[in-house]
């Protein structure tokens, strides 16, 4: 938050490549499989023996499937190590396949701006196992909402996230996780029931316990209301 201009040192993409490196160019005639592997994969293999379950190149992009228990260490190392410097988190998302036997994939898209590299990390969550992966919020602050959205849409818990609440749907949304394949396109309830539940909410009074504490209004509430707010419920329902 400081506007001190002396501490303002710009981050320049491609700065680690040197001046005689080839300028980036639009990829042409990208092969479906078997392009050049991102050198980061070998570095991860050397640093974390056995953590890389699979690495392949699809349409010119390197995909690394990482052990679920060690993905946080891998990302932490990719971010901190100056020879990798993956300092920019593009995206956190998940994929569920139509074949319900296939595991759910949690996907991180990372960019190394100094080296102009792009890598896709994946963790496979087998069906039937608990749906939780470590949060990378402590590494990238930008992961905050991306992980909350992923939790909201898929029900994947990000361990270590400071405030894992629903983001896009309202908190009392009862129909489930919309982007799961067992969720029908039109939702589980009938239109009239969806409308009734939505209209039953009181938009002016919908505050969380945290927000009411700011206004010192929390202590003035009746005991049962406070108890309900303590469990994460909100007012106005």
């Amino acid at each position: 938050m400081s506007s001190d201009s002396t501490s303002f040192s710009p981050v320049i993409a491609g700065s680690a490549l040197g001046s005689n490196a080839a300028a980036p160019a639009t990829p042409k005639n990208v092969a479906h499989r078997g392009g050049a592997l991102n050198p980061t994969v070998d570095a991860i293999r050397a640093q974390f023996a056995g953590a890389v379950l699979r690495a392949d190149v699809v349409w010119g992009e390197t995909t690394v499937v990482v052990d679920r228990a060690r993905v946080h260490d891998v990302i932490r190392w990719l971010h901190d190590d100056p020879s990798q410097a993956y300092n920019y988190l593009s995206d956190v998302t998940a994929v569920e396949f139509r074949d319900l036997e296939q595991p759910i994939e949690v996907v991180w898209h990372l960019r190394s701006l100094p080296y102009r590299r792009f890598i896709r990390l994946k963790v496979l969550i087998e069906k039937g196992t608990p749906m939780d992966v470590p949060s990378v919020w402590d590494i990238y602050k930008g992961a905050d909402w991306l992980e909350r959205e992923c939790y909201d849409m898929f029900g994947i818990t990000f361990r270590g996230h400071p405030d894992l609440r629903r983001l896009l749907m309202w908190e009392q949304y009862k129909e489930g996780y919309p982007l799961r394949k067992d969720f029908p396109l039109r939702g589980r309830f009938s239109r009239s029931e969806q409308l009734r539940q939505a209209l039953a909410a009181n938009p002016e009074a919908r505050y969380s316990k945290e927000e009411l504490s700011i206004a010192d209004a929390f202590e003035d509430l009746p005991a049962d209301m406070r108890r309900r707010l303590d469990t994460g419920e909100r007012t106005g329902e």
């Binding site: 969806q194 539940q197 939505a198 209209l199 039953a200 909410a201 009181n202 938009p203 002016e204």
Partner: peptide
Amino acid sequence: PFKLAPVLRR
């Protein structure tokens, strides 16, 4: 969207 419906009504 449904999340906005009570706002519009209000």
